[in-house]
Simulated scan of single mutants.
Amino acid sequence: MTEAPAPVRREGIPLGKIAGVPVVLAYSWFIIAAFTVMVYGPVLGRQNPALGVSAYVVAFAYAVLLLISVLVHELAHALTARIYGWPTQKIVLNLWGGHTQFESFTASPGRSVLVAMAGPAANFALAGGAWLVLTSVPMGSVAEILTNIFMWANFLIAVFNVLPGLPLDGGRLVESAVWKATGSQAKGTIAAGWGGRIIVVAIVFWFILRPLLAGDEPDFSLVMITVLVGGFLWMGASASIQQGTLRSRLPLVSAAALSTPAVGLPATASVQEALQYGAGQTAVVVYGPDRRPQAVVDPAAVAAVPAAVAHSTPITAVSFALAPGAYVPEWAKGQELITFLSQLAGRHYAVVDHNGIVTGLLSQDAVLAAITGKRQRPDGRPQGHNR
């Protein structure tokens, strides 16, 4: 009986494509929509008693207008990025607003700023358009309410997003400025991440601590919004700091620097030859007739072979197989090396020179230790914190 494939979990509802960019409405958006209706509906009802129950319908329309504003914001990012040949994978609209997911691309400080600022610029344009409509077109009460909401929503989205800290768009200004000044994008990302954390502290102080210090009780809904937004920003800022820290360690990720010395022997060699050539700390890599690395000799297995039969025991009997294609050039380093290793199975990779001769053995643990900054244990595993 053939097992049915596991269902693929969808992150949301596909809304089709706009200008060739797939748009997905995440299920989490309905949470913020419900929150908007529950919080803003009663407020709208008190301010406009004539609306009655329809105040909640207007509140839902407000949530939809916010969704449209965020969509335009993200489309501005995607279409500006297209100018520089940055492929956009998709736009996701979710609980926190939304994000544009790009495929791999090469950025520069100037281009990064332009792509980031395109989003707030689009919202400023929408706010300006709504203001023109309000001041020049007579409308009914509901239409005027929604247009006014649309104007202020876009204005606030634009202003909020230009604040100088990641994950906000304004954080790219900080990142690019530091990047341009130091030549290091990693330092720029870390600085912008700390800018994001400072923004969170300022928001919490202004909307929660300041009223408490003044003897007032903060509005509950405002506290909830502050906690939600602050939590989202703090997580994004922390992720940016972590990303920048890891990126700063990329120059340390080098196949030549991280590998242990190794020698290559043909699969026809014996354990005796492995003992001879693999003396001390030198590893032994087994290669096939095409001279491509195929396996690694296990020192523990070699030690278990009696000396009397070492010359007649093939090294393939005391070796564990490498994953197909698990060998890298000794000059490979940085993101190129990490990307290549991420596509390979296994935990060990042979290192070869320009002539294809084995010069070292690289372990996955050594690469992870270089990226994370954790020291390795004597057994080759990176040290962590015990819990």
Rank of each mutant, 00 (worst) to 15 (best):
L114A: 14
L134A: 00
V162T: 00
A256I: 06
A127Y: 10
A76L: 05
E11M: 12
S319T: 09
V57R: 01
V229S: 08
V70F: 08
S254G: 13
A118T: 09
F207M: 03
M38R: 00
L67R: 03
T2I: 10
S248A: 15
N154V: 07
L222F: 05
Y62T: 08
L166D: 04
L250F: 12
V70K: 03
L156A: 13
I190E: 12
D353M: 08
I241D: 05
V305E: 13
P120C: 02
L361V: 01
L344W: 01
G231S: 08
A350G: 10
S108R: 14
G20C: 03
W86F: 12
D290R: 13
S342D: 05
E3Q: 12
Y277S: 01
G356D: 11
I91G: 02
T316M: 13
G45V: 01
V328Y: 07
S112I: 00
L126F: 09
M235N: 05
L51Q: 06
T189V: 13
V72Q: 10
S221D: 07
R82G: 07
S240E: 08
D290G: 08
W96R: 02
I199A: 09
T88W: 02
A303C: 02
T359I: 13
M224S: 12
A301N: 05
R10M: 08
L65I: 15
V113K: 13
K374R: 12
T88M: 03
V21A: 00
Q47S: 11
S238T: 14
A81K: 06
P329C: 01
L71E: 00
P120S: 02
Q364K: 14
T189L: 12
V24C: 02
A121H: 03
L93W: 06
P293C: 12
A116Q: 09
F155D: 06
I83D: 00
S319G: 08
M151S: 12
M38T: 10
Y84D: 10
F124G: 01
A34V: 06
V39H: 06
M235K: 01
A256F: 14
Y349T: 08
L95K: 00
M117Y: 07
P164G: 01
G41Q: 13
T268A: 13
